[in-house]
Amino acid sequence: MKTLVIKIENLTYKYSVGTPFEKVAVDNVNLEIEGGEVIGVIGHTGSGKSTLIQHLNGLLKPTSGKIYLDGMDIWADKSKLRQVRFNVGLVFQYPEYQLFEETVYKDIAFGPKNMGLTEKEIDYRVHEAAEFAGIREEVLQKSPSELSGGQKRRVAIAGVIAMEPKVLILDEPTAGLDPKGRNKILSQIKTYHEKVGNTILLVSHSMEDVAVFADKVLVMNKAKVFAYDTVENVFARSEELKAIRLAVPQITNVFHRLHEEGYPVPENVYTVAYAKRKLLATLAERGKLPNA
């Protein structure tokens, strides 16, 4: 049975209230997030997705509206706000720029240390998080400045994973990485989710990533929730998505066209892996036909 982890009620956030630069960044958003789900968050730059996720761990205070974590209003008791931040781990865009310690080990330990854990527990968590993020043992004693961009980013992600958050939010974790670094990070996150089974929010520009990775998709457009549904249901609305200048995965477009042209393929396909299976099956069937 699924349980509600985060509930957002009528959330509105305005920047620079009372100045000529006032701007509504999040407009009356209502949202329910269940435990164990992986949610892809997509939208244009400035659609409010980054602002929205910074509300989930109390970094931004709503102009109006409420956010509940496990049924508790996170702003009800300000002294518990830090606790909320440990429960909702947020990895920012380009997180490698926040590394500051002399060694990778110490940097990953920063979060657990702030939680006030024992040395032993911290040590355990650092090693566990490093493993989840694919950081080898010998790297732990290196200085972050010696690492490559992709490695640095995985260290930064490990720093948040080490807090063992109930909800992990990643803001474009693959931005600016080469395909190899990108695949590595995505597969590490996937393994992590399979093992720990917590809730993950993945902000991404890549429809392909979201299709492979997520159970549900949240589409933000102009500060509002445009759609929040399963991957299939959201990508089935491809015409609407195109209208707000968001695209469905390329492979979905390819199969739409194939279907339109009368080929015996399914109409709604979202991942390359699934497409490959279906195509091979179709071809095999055709192979059996006498005149093929």
Binding site: Q54, N57, L59, R82, R85, F86, G89, L90, V91, F92, P95, Q98, F110, G111, N114, M115, G159, V160, M163
Partner: peptide
Amino acid sequence: SAQKARGA
């Protein structure tokens, strides 16, 4: 914000 998110 990033360090606060890690409990700073």
